[in-house]
Computed example of a mutant assay.
Amino acid sequence: MAYGKRETEGVATLADIEALPEGVVGEIIDGTLYVHAQPRPGHMDILGGLHAVLWSQFQQGRSGPGGWWIQVEPGIELEDSPEFIPDIAGWRKERIARLPATSWRLAPDWACEILSPSTRGYDQRIKRPFYARIGIRHLWFIDLESRTLTVSELREGRWTELGVYGDDDVVRAAPFEEVELRLGELWPLVEPSDAR
């Protein structure tokens, strides 16, 4: 199942997401409900691996500087978009001192999307400009098919690409430059697929 718009009566609400069938993920961006299939194992493996590295070093401060909240698939509620879910997102603790009791109501400082054949267009055409509009400063796209990490930074309302990195690269990528990431250790050992 590729991503797609789901027709709703009027502006989409959380009730529309709750009514989705099992195995279908929904997000509301600018009042429109978008749906896609749940992620596959390779997607979840790289998600878990990247989260583990960043959570340990940037949230917990183990062998790293700390100072961040790093969350997997956080539910974020903003005024015009009552539910959207980056694959991974981070907030600087200087902006928000404690984890929220329910949903995040503040755009993150960093977001990461893991591209797959079924969500690549959605992440690039819908979420990327949306993330710029709401002021997310740093955006990573991880492409499982090409085994690359694309790092972008928001400058004057537009995305500036800071670099594209691959298998053997050891990188210090904004906003987490304090720690080296060995990309080859993150890629899952799965067969390439045409579906998420």
Rank of each mutant, 00 (worst) to 15 (best):
A132I: 05
S116I: 04
G135F: 06
I126K: 04
F130W: 06
S103M: 10
D123K: 00
I126P: 01
P117F: 06
R120T: 12
L115G: 00
W110M: 09
R98W: 12
T119G: 01
T119Y: 01
I126H: 03
W110I: 10
K127Y: 00
T102A: 13
P100K: 08
F130H: 10
W104H: 10
A111D: 03
Y131K: 08
R98H: 13
T102Y: 11
S118Y: 00
L106K: 14
C112I: 14
Y122P: 06
R133E: 12
R133A: 13
L99M: 14
R98P: 10
R105D: 08
A101W: 09
R98I: 12
A101H: 10
L115E: 03
D109E: 14
G121V: 12
I126C: 05
P100R: 09
D123N: 02
Y122N: 10
P129E: 07
P129N: 10
R98G: 08
I134C: 05
R120F: 06
I134L: 14
I114N: 00
R120K: 15
W104D: 02
S116V: 03
A101G: 12
W110F: 15
T119M: 00
W110P: 12
S103G: 04
Q124I: 14
T119D: 01
A132C: 11
D109K: 07
D109M: 07
A101P: 08
W104P: 06
I114H: 02
D109L: 09
Q124R: 15
D109V: 13
P100N: 11
P100W: 11
S103P: 07
F130V: 07
A132W: 08
R120A: 14
K127H: 00
S118Q: 01
R125H: 12
R133L: 09
P100Y: 09
P100C: 09
R125E: 09
A101V: 12
G121M: 08
A111N: 02
I126Q: 00
P108D: 05
T119H: 00
Y122E: 03
P100A: 11
R105V: 10
A97C: 10
C112M: 11
A132S: 14
P129K: 09
P108T: 04
A107C: 12
L115D: 05
L106R: 13
T102H: 13
R133P: 05
L106E: 13
R128I: 03
L106V: 15
E113H: 05
